[in-house]
Design a protein around this nucleic acid. Structure first.
Ligand SMILES: [Mn+2]
Ligand SMILES: [Mn+2]
Length: 682
DNA sequence: GAAAGCG
DNA sequence: CGCTTTCAACGCTTG
DNA sequence: CAAGCG
């Protein structure tokens, strides 16, 4: 150690402090930067002294007792004394870290699944390493962690790897994967505590911390609070920054509500109270909420905000108004008189009149949008909303309880991504999975609209065995919102369009892995099938389904009718299966699938459907089916990694549509192809 | 979610 | 009138 | 043919 350049003999500090990263818009270029994935957890310094371990939070509190397993693991590190720097996270199977899961683990006192990701080393065995170049500090740390983990397949304490250079590419790739962002560090830098410019953070979405300053009463049937009112310090003035009403599970919402009730205050904490906030309960601003949002409106409030968790490791005074916030709101003088919540009118009558969420800034997307909470008139119209001109009943009904995602939020999701979803879903007959009481309620499949669904959504009559039946299809955003109003959580589409129903314009090969098939194997199978289809002269585009598998979608010029098309698909699937009998089957029977991947070619029948691109799934985690490009099909991808909560990060980072070439790649199925697939010419 | 049925 | 009940797919494969 | 499948 003494031989190490920069190491200085020094006593172990009693109260170590951490280096902090400064926010930047883009990742730095050049080989003199190292880049790490940004974790979504708690920043923790570990102080090791003669077998004794102390875990210290960002604001200097002793959190050792919160993480007994990690403490125990650190006690076994082969060091006399050390200061380690890292982040404690809840690590999911797909390699992502979730702050929500971390907090749930902490409040349930079940911290066994948590992992300590170490990325720096301040002090080791009598020497201060602050002046040792970063790369060397990380090498020493790496060896230390490796030596301790030799016989551990799933270690609790891990070394955090980095890539050198290629910052902008790494950042783009991280965002396309739906991650939070990256941290960039100067390769030869010393360890400097406090905020500096040698550690930089680039984020994939707007995410900031705000003080919880109040809450609204819940709307019909809901418990606890409806949404939180947020603020931040601007100098010594507390400024209102908007509300957040999604992102909490039921449990979290109720426990947060208990804490807020103890903080309730008669007095509005804002010198300039927000306008039109009726029936708000104010609280003393002490709790800190981490919030993700799409943008600031011109009024200086958050748009599309979503709660990510409570920060227990910061001080309220640290919460300053971000520089990106428009100055507008602070200048504005109060119009409305501050209300102290007194159960005025009926409980339900305490309805927020209008959220400051439709401003000019909010109107800039391609698709016309109007997202309003309707004014409370008397009592009849209470609790209704409108999106894209379509009336939503029960906008506050929770459809995904673990995420607190409501019907209004689902409608806003489709409004937000309309330009992505509409080209891929328009003019195709639909089947729906409806869950009017949410994902965990009773769900059912629906093919025919009957009375349930808005007359404004177009129908096409399709001949069936006996007579002709109506099917829904969409051509525009309001139709999608109409489906949301009906409680549709999954949209499944035909492989043909309403103007050419009998001739498919796309095929779907649905790869359904058995439970114990690894991702690697699914993807290997997918590439082999891709090759097989390309050899026939057709293109394939991959789509992760939001469930467990993957689709290969084949663009066609409509020519053959359904029966011939399906025969073609069956021949391909059976050929693939017979060439790889151990890993594949073309037999739908579950008993024949054990340990294998089923090539479900049966999506390619008349009236068969497949999940639509960008449709949500009625599954845990609020996943979404997402078109990807073939070069994204690798170890980083999982079939359900994109969700209602993180898809926006991906779309924002995409340089181009991963299915950009889809239209140009259309080809008819020729008799040559049929012959090559082993079918007789027609 | 919405219409029909029931007390 | 308000509360409860009912309904919301189906064709093809497989053994 | 009934049962299973998505
Ligand atoms: Mn599937
Ligand atoms: Mn399938």
């Amino acid at each position: 150690m003494a031989a190490l350049d920069g190491a200085v003999k020094k006593a172990l500090p009693q109260k170590p402090s951490a280096a902090l990263a400064s926010a930047v818009k883009a990742a730095p270029e050049g080989d003199d930067w190292l880049h790490e994935i940004k974790f979504d957890g708690y920043r923790i310094l570990a102080r090791l002294h003669k077998g004794d371990v102390q875990l210290i939070s960002r604001n200097g509190n002793d959190w050792t007792r919160k993480f007994p397993e990690i403490r125990h693991r650190l006690e076994k590190l082969a060091v006399q004394d050390a200061i380690l720097d890292g982040e404690i996270i809840a690590l999911a199977d797909d390699g992502t870290s979730s702050f929500r899961n971390l907090q749930e683990a902490l409040s349930a006192r079940d911290t066994r699944g948590l992992v300590y990701q170490l990325f720096d080393l301040q002090h080791l065995d009598g020497y201060n390493l602050a002046a040792v170049p970063l790369q060397q500090r990380k090498e020493i740390l790496h060896q230390l962690v490796n030596a301790a983990n030799t016989d551990d397949a799933s270690p609790l304490v891990r070394y955090t790897d980095h890539i050198r250079g290629h910052g902008p590419e790494f950042f783009g790739q991280s965002c396309r994967l739906g991650l939070e962002g990256i941290i960039s560090k100067k390769i030869d830098s010393h360890y400097r505590t406090g905020r500096g410019t040698i550690w930089l953070k680039a984020k994939c979405a707007n995410q900031e911390e705000f003080l919880i300053c109040g809450y609204t009463r819940p709307n019909g049937g809901r418990k606890g609070f409806g949404s939180l009112l947020l603020g931040a310090w601007h100098g010594d003035e507390l400024v209102y920054t908007g509300r957040v009403g999604t992102g909490f599970s039921q449990n979290l919402l109720l426990s947060l509500y208990e804490r807020l009730r103890e903080l309730t205050s008669e007095e509005c904490p804002f010198p300039s109270p927000p306008e039109n906030e009726v029936g708000v309960r104010w609280v003393t601003p002490t709790l800190i909420a981490e919030v993700e949002f799409t943008e600031w409106t011109r009024d200086g409030v958050l748009r599309h905000s979503s709660f990510r968790g409570l920060r227990e490791d910061k001080e309220p005074a640290e919460i300053q108004l971000p520089e990106a916030a428009p100055q507008h709101a602070q200048v504005k003088k109060p119009k409305a008189v501050a209300q102290t919540a007194k159960g005025a009118q009926t409980a339900k009558g305490a309805q927020t009149a209008k959220v400051a969420q439709t401003t000019e800034a909010a109107q800039t997307t391609k698709v016309a949008q109007t997202t309003n909470v309707a004014p409370a008139t008397k009592k009849a119209r209470v609790n209704q909303a409108e999106v894209a001109g379509v009336r939503l009943s029960n906008p506050d009904r929770i459809l995904f309880p673990d995420q607190g995602i409501t019907k209004l939020h689902l409608a806003q999701y489709y409004e937000d991504i309309a330009e992505w979803v509409l080209p891929l879903i328009s003019n195709r007959p639909l089947s729906l999975v409806r869950c009017p009481d949410g994902r965990t309620g009773e769900c059912f499949f629906q093919k025919h609209p009957r009375t349930v669904i808005s007359e404004a959504i177009p129908r096409v009559d399709i001949p069936e065995k006996e007579g002709t039946k109506p099917y829904l299809y969409v051509t525009a955003l309001p139709h999608l919102i109409g489906l949301v109003q009906a409680g549709a959580l999954e949209l499944h589409v035909w492989g043909s369009r309403v103007d050419k129903l009998e001739q498919p314009d796309q095929l779907v090969f649905d790869l359904d892995p058995a439970a114990n098939v690894s991702l690697k194997e699914i993807f290997r199978v997918a590439f082999e099938l891709k090759q097989r289809i390309e050899d026939l002269g057709l293109a394939t585009f991959p789509r992760i389904t939001g469930g467990k598998g993957l689709h290969l979608v084949v663009p066609l010029v409509p020519k053959l009718e359904w029966e011939e098309a399906k025969n073609f698909c069956r021949a391909i699937a059976q050929q693939a299966a017979s060439d790889d009998k151990t890993r594949l089957t073309a037999n739908m029977a579950k008993s024949k699938r054990h340990g294998k991947t089923f090539i479900d070619y049966l999506r390619n029948g008349r009236s068969a459907t497949a999940i639509a691109s960008y449709s949500t799934r009625a599954r845990p985690g609020a996943p979404v089916a997402v078109p990807v490009s073939w070069d994204e099909v690798n170890d980083s991808l999982t079939p359900n990694r994109y969700t209602l909560e993180n898809l926006r990060r991906r779309l924002g980072a995409l340089q181009s549509d991963p299915w950009q070439e889809f239209e140009e790649a259309r080809r008819p199925i020729t008799s040559k192809m049929l012959a090559k697939a082993g079918l007789k010419k027609t």
